[in-house]
Structure formats: C-alpha cells, structure tokens
Design a protein around this nucleic acid. Structure first.
Length: 284
DNA sequence: CACTTGACCTGTCCGC
DNA sequence: TGCGGACAGGTCAAGT
C-alpha cells in the first residue's frame, strides 16, 4: 500500500521521534521479514531518517537500515509510558483497535524514547540491514528519480515517455525505474488530473498533455502528503491515525460514483493486473 | 523486448 | 451458516 506519500508521511513522523535515538533492542518475531544481522543494529544511533521511492532508510553511524512496507506494512511508534491503538484487520466500519504488539507485529525496535512496531498483515514487507554505502546503492540504485529532484525534469519525463512509447501510460508511471514512488492509487489520480487515459500508449501524448501529466504528478503527491496519505484499510501514520487523502480522491475506489467534476460515473477496469479507475468523460 | 500471469500472505467480502 | 472464489496499497520470476 504505502506509496510515496504514505512513506514520506511515516518518514517525517519517525524523523521527529527517532533522530538521535539509540537502538537498544531488536526483537524479530518473523525471521522471513528481517534480512541481515540484527546484532549489528544494537547500540547504534539513528542519525537520519530518509526515503527513496517507497523505501524508508534509517542512516546509522555505521551502515543503514532499509524498510519496505509493501502492501500492508505499518510502522507504529509508541512513546514510552503511552499507548497507541491501531486498527487491525478490518473494514473501517467494523474495525477494532488493538495495541501492538499483536499477532501481526513481526519486528520490535526498542529505543530510550519508545518502541517502534513493524506490523504487516500479509508479510510481504521487509527490513534489511545494509552494512555500507555500496549495499545501500545496490538496494536503491535501480530506482528512477524522485518527483521533486531536478533530475525529474520535463525533458526527462518527455524522453522517458518516448522511450516507452508503445507501453501503456499507467504501467510506465508505476515502473519504479522510470520514476520512484508511484503506485496504484497515485497513478490513477495523476492520470485523472492530467485528463488522459491509463491505457493510452505512452508515446501518444502531445506536448500539452505531457506537461500536464508531469505537473499533475507533483501536485497529486504534494496534496497527498499534506493529507497524510491514503488509508484505505491498513495504512496508518506512526501515531496510529489515518491519512485522509481518500476523502478527496477523484477516481480511486470511486467506481460507479459520479465524477466530482462532470458527474459522469467513474469506471473501474483491470489494467496490467491492477484495478484502474477513470472518468470516461474527463479523461480523453 | 513487452506484456501477462502467478507467487508471496492474510483477511474481507460476495454469491450460492 | 458455510464454502469457494475474487480481490487488496507492491514487486519478482517465469511464461508467452
């Protein structure tokens, strides 16, 4: 689930709590999710909390800790002497709150200031110890530029679409080697914003459309970060609260509801194996 | 090379 | 009420 805005929201919150903190203890309950030697983390201070695409990167005095939340991962921080309830396994309407650690808690990091819980219902996520710069590069080196880097210029975007001219737009946007951080939600929202259809060949856009899509990606990301991301069910901010982008999403999960712009019913189709939402009137 | 499908997991929801 | 199947934010590998 977590796409760039969710991971960025988590990064900002954890930076406040964890920079300068020393890792006192690491408890791995599900070995599958933890790659590397956990003992290398003990006693190390976190000097920075960064992000590359959808991957969180904790910089340590020696090496890094990288975390990918995949579909249902959560990082919940509970300050010492406090409790944070987290919704688990439920539709928002009949959700129930549970305080970690619970049955989906797989890794527990203990700091002087509190405890960080890595929960993941589906166990697709992972945490990885990276011993040095080279290991980090190997982990994130394949990723395309961030949307707010100078490298992600209009010229770069134009060139990228030309290179992938025959592929359909949405899969191109979601390919992390082209641009880091877009997933299913923000692909649909960006394409709606740009008024282009997800299954158009990437090479079929005119200059105006290319520029529009380029600007929309940044706009959508910024707005989503302001709203703390999209909580459709599992995603939570580190303090346990939900992100509110879904309330203002234009197309994602709005199939059969009227378009917020033109009232035409939003359609949902399957594209490249992913549910895809669009307005057949606005996007053309 | 580009695209599709299945796998990885657990849970929810829908139809019968 | 129970059961099978489809589906869910991501990414890989394998097949066509």
């Amino acid at each position: 689930m977590p796409e760039l805005p969710e991971v960025e929201t988590i990064r900002r919150a954890l930076a406040k709590e964890l920079i300068g903190q020393i890792i006192e203890k690491v408890e791995v309950r599900a070995a599958k999710l933890f790659l590397g030697d956990k003992d290398k983390l003990i006693g190390q201070k976190i000097t920075e909390v960064g992000r590359r695409g959808k991957i969180l990167i904790f910089t340590l005095e020696h090496g890094y800790l990288a975390i990918h939340l995949k579909m249902t991962g959560q990082l919940i921080f509970v300050p010492k002497n406090k409790k944070v309830g987290v919704l688990i396994g439920g539709h928002p309407d009949k959700a129930y709150i549970e305080t970690p650690p619970h049955r989906h808690t797989h890794i527990i990091f203990t700091f002087p200031a509190g405890v960080l819980y890595f929960n993941d219902l589906r166990k697709f996520g992972w945490a990885k110890v990276l011993s040095d710069e080279a290991a980090l590069k190997k982990e994130v080196g394949h990723l395309g530029p961030e949307y707010d880097w100078p490298e992600f210029s209009l010229a770069y975007f134009q060139q990228m679409l030309t290179k992938k001219a025959k592929s359909r737009l949405k899969p191109v946007l979601m390919d992390q080697t082209n641009l880091a951080g877009i997933g299913n939600i923000y692909a649909d929202e960006s394409l709606f914003c740009a008024k282009v259809l997800p299954d158009w060949p990437a090479g079929s856009l005119n200059d105006r459309e290319v520029r529009r899509l380029y600007q929309c990606i940044g706009q959508v990301f910024k707005l989503a970060i302001e709203r703390g991301g999209t909580s459709s069910r599992d995603y939570r901010q580190p303090d346990g609260t939900r992100g509110t982008f879904l309330e203002i999403a234009k197309v994602y999960r709005r199939q059969n509801l009227p378009c917020r712009i033109c009232r035409t019913l939003i359609k949902q189709v399957k594209l490249a194996g992913r549910s895809t939402h669009f307005c057949p009137n606005c996007q053309k």
